[in-house]
Design a protein around this nucleic acid. Sequence first.
DNA 1: TTGTAGGCGTTATCAT
DNA 2: ATGATAACGCCTACAA
Lengths: 334, 334
Amino acid sequence: MSIKVTMKDIAREAGVSIATVSHVINGTKHISENKRKLITNVIEKYNYVPDTRAKSLRNAVTKTAGLVVSVFPDSYVTGIVNGIGKRARELDYHLLFINTNEDYDYEKESIKLLSSNIVDGIILTPSEMNLGYIQKYMKKGLPIIQAIRYDPNIPRLPRVTADDFQAGYDATKHLLQHGHRKIGVIISRTNITPTIERIEGYKAALTEYNIPFDEGLIESGFATEKNALIATKKLLNREKEITALFVLSDLMTIGAMQAITELSLKCPDDIALIGFGDFAGAAITNPPITNVSLSAETIGRTAFDVLLNKINNPGYDKHIQIPTSLMIRKSCGC
Amino acid sequence: MSIKVTMKDIAREAGVSIATVSHVINGTKHISENKRKLITNVIEKYNYVPDTRAKSLRNAVTKTAGLVVSVFPDSYVTGIVNGIGKRARELDYHLLFINTNEDYDYEKESIKLLSSNIVDGIILTPSEMNLGYIQKYMKKGLPIIQAIRYDPNIPRLPRVTADDFQAGYDATKHLLQHGHRKIGVIISRTNITPTIERIEGYKAALTEYNIPFDEGLIESGFATEKNALIATKKLLNREKEITALFVLSDLMTIGAMQAITELSLKCPDDIALIGFGDFAGAAITNPPITNVSLSAETIGRTAFDVLLNKINNPGYDKHIQIPTSLMIRKSCGC
DNA sequence: TTGTAGGCGTTATCAT
DNA sequence: ATGATAACGCCTACAA
């Protein structure tokens, strides 16, 4: 524990009242120049910093935001966290960071803890589309917003996500334009909105080409390199007519590429591929990888701004989608 | 602001004293079963959670650790943050996360803020070897440890780092064994211990082969892909006899590979390369990249344990080095 | 311009 | 077994 020097100590040493000290620190009242100097010197001398807990207990403001993320590390999420952090700093906020690792119970527990006046608001990436438990916190007036993923059943909760539908549509259409008709998809998890919406986009593009949706072309890679490798092999062995792959995260893209190699197939000649999330390194792989690119930092920054809006205006319930774009390289066959 | 329901409210509704409520919550005293039940029900009903600020104001413990990191995102640092987070969770701690972006003044400011009883201790990755300002916090008894980088002038501060000397030695020796005699190095920044120690290892290996150290073979890539690309081109254009490159971070490795390609050189035939930090994707580049591999998660976990040691034992001042190993693939010419 | 004192929500001591 | 109350460090009417 730090050796405590409090405002009382400063006041005593400076020979003034505790209220005067408080006023010079916060500039809340005009204090004569000589007392000001005197007090400031004592503060400097002891390197005194007001106790944040006591302060926030008094003013009911913590100037820190809770960040509850369900998956990390991952270059997409990392970039978003980074964006949130930058914006928070610009706005003089701090971040209490929790990684739930997709553990729903831990997520609930974390929100409960954060609801104990430890933060002014929360940015949440839900582990599941099962946010019923959040209602009681909303009722209490705790500002919460969703980022990356969301629960569609709680529309009053603000959210900022990528434009996942459009991303799925664009990638699929690009592959379709290259002549591919059997397009496999490696998803991370079934029941999260980014997956659902990207698949919706995929279906929409398919429909334009009068191709029926085939559930059998979808396989789960559970967001890791290794699992994606396994999933891709499984999928490619099962569905022999697949000529293109759409892979929904960067780590999985790497696994999928390895699978293609291990199956002695050539990308893009035998199997074309489009990934998701433009990771560093996508340009120097063999072949360089075409993928859906999006500014994770923008999503993060926007998420923080949305949280502040929610804090300042309890009725705020906007849903924001950040656009994505296709970064075309070689793996798609261009 | 959340609508406040306090212990007083619970007590009133349950028809008991506030002290009794506190005791059932904390199990500090034996309370009759019927009152227990009664109180627990009221707590459930209002979803009451004790105010963390008030609590910690009372017991001088916050159960949160400050994490001040100077560079992010970067797969190495991200992995360490992840390891710290996991270990913190296991030990029931929370994390206040700050990314200083190599800004020394912001780092100082952050430490000052964190010293206001907001955390029980701090894990710091210093932006510079200039930690003089930390002495006053040490004197106050604030538990601080260093991770990744450190200031050698403050030996009493605990630290956990990779075994950077060994890493530099191993990589260089490997290149030397392949017959390379002019080995270029792309560093991020000059004045940080990981760079310094890896270069020391590099020199030691050179000495074994009676090769004089040549300052001209070193170039700064400032930890980014783009700058490393520029630095690598500059270096390779200036020092024509270079046949191998040692690159000190993953993002820079990607940039260096691009530079090699853009100069119409072949890796490993014209230029061999060893990178640092085994990033996802190193296996599917062309050629697959040999690099120094280390468990970032282990470093993170250890860092958190070291912090707890420091918190519990103010005299603790150990320096821990986590071993690295060479992950051999193709870019070194093997 | 400066000081006094009550209260923020807890915990823990001391009574009862 | 339960309750009254002081104290944690700060802010802010209200007084002087």
